[in-house]
Simulated assay, not measured.
Amino acid sequence: MNRRQEYLKYLLEKERWTIDDEEWMLSYLERGELGAFENVAREAFNEDVASYKNVRDIRLSESALKSIHQRIDMPKPSLMQSIQLHWVKYAAAACIVLLLGWGYLYMTVFYSGSQSIPVQHVTTAATERKTIELPDGSFVSLEPGTSLDYPATFTGETRKVSLKGEAFFEVAKDAKHPFVIQTKHLKTTVLGTSFNVEAYDTKLSKVVVVTGKVKVQTDEDKQTIILTPNQSVVYNNTTGELVKKEVATEAQFYQHRRIGKFNYRGVGLDKVVEDLQRYYNTTITIEGDTKECMFYGDLFAGDQLEKSLGLIATSLNATIKKDTKNSYTIVGGHCR
């Protein structure tokens, strides 16, 4: 599932839409590119989307659009806007039918003369991961127990967001408007790159760069460090110490987690187990000498942990023992 399709699915599953969500959907409808929407509908209903494509009842489409726009509190459109709306009506007709078939459509856009920019607040539950698209086209993958605040529209000289928790950022390039992530103790500035920021209410805060270059600063800009790919900086929230490290393996983990596939070609079993423990927030113990074995294979983030452990066990001729609800042991086996 591509990012646009993933974001469409996310919007349609939300109970209510924010102003930014509504503006994004209106922009999507105006473009008339309905392929991603049809894919989401196919997945949701598990039926042939071709049946929707055969809908040609323009009166139904007009009625649907009229109903939607009656729910949008906006000034009466100009003649040009009316012409544009007339064109969009037909371009988006099939999409509107799909929306109505989905069962609900929350669109209440408010246009006002106020200059204040609404702040969007996104959170994830303790076991939830979520990817969102920001107004500038950047993507943010939120880890469990994370919150992100960002403006409905980026204005001014920078694109600033606030983070509490952990997230992977893929920032759209815009040299004239640096992207800034503010956490409790660190400020990270970037022009266009991908990196992971970890800033829970714990002892340490961390930034890991996968691609590009970022600048990390402490409170009141007392310390500044420049990071390039495969480098990280760790900030001790207690002592105020800022330490730079080379972390190629850790950067690779974040990249794999983002794409949803952990690719191993001769990686030690202890490292594979470490990745699984981090991703699934669990405890895995290796009994015997198999921790020195090399593992070859792909593990998918969307799979249940037991399936991934089963693949590892098969490659080693080992067995998996479930100790508690959230604890496993790899027993026996040998290197191949």
Rank of each mutant, 00 (worst) to 15 (best):
V267I: 05
T238H: 12
S82K: 15
Y10M: 09
R129V: 00
Q70F: 07
A199W: 05
L65H: 09
G332F: 01
K187A: 01
F110H: 15
K184L: 00
S138N: 12
I72P: 00
T218F: 02
R31C: 00
Q120N: 14
G192R: 08
A64S: 11
C95P: 10
R42N: 13
S194K: 10
A199I: 00
Y279K: 14
Y254S: 13
D298P: 10
E157M: 12
Q70W: 09
S232A: 10
E292D: 15
V190F: 05
V97Q: 08
Y7V: 14
H86V: 11
G165M: 07
A125S: 08
Q277G: 08
I83T: 14
F262D: 12
L227D: 02
N46G: 00
P178H: 07
Y200I: 05
G165V: 08
T18V: 12
G113L: 15
L309H: 04
I132E: 00
D149V: 01
R257P: 10
E170Y: 07
K321H: 06
T155Q: 05
F195M: 11
Q277F: 03
E43K: 13
P178C: 00
F154H: 03
T228R: 05
D21G: 10
N2A: 07
T314D: 13
H256G: 10
S116L: 12
R258H: 15
A41P: 13
D73L: 07
Q81T: 11
Q223L: 07
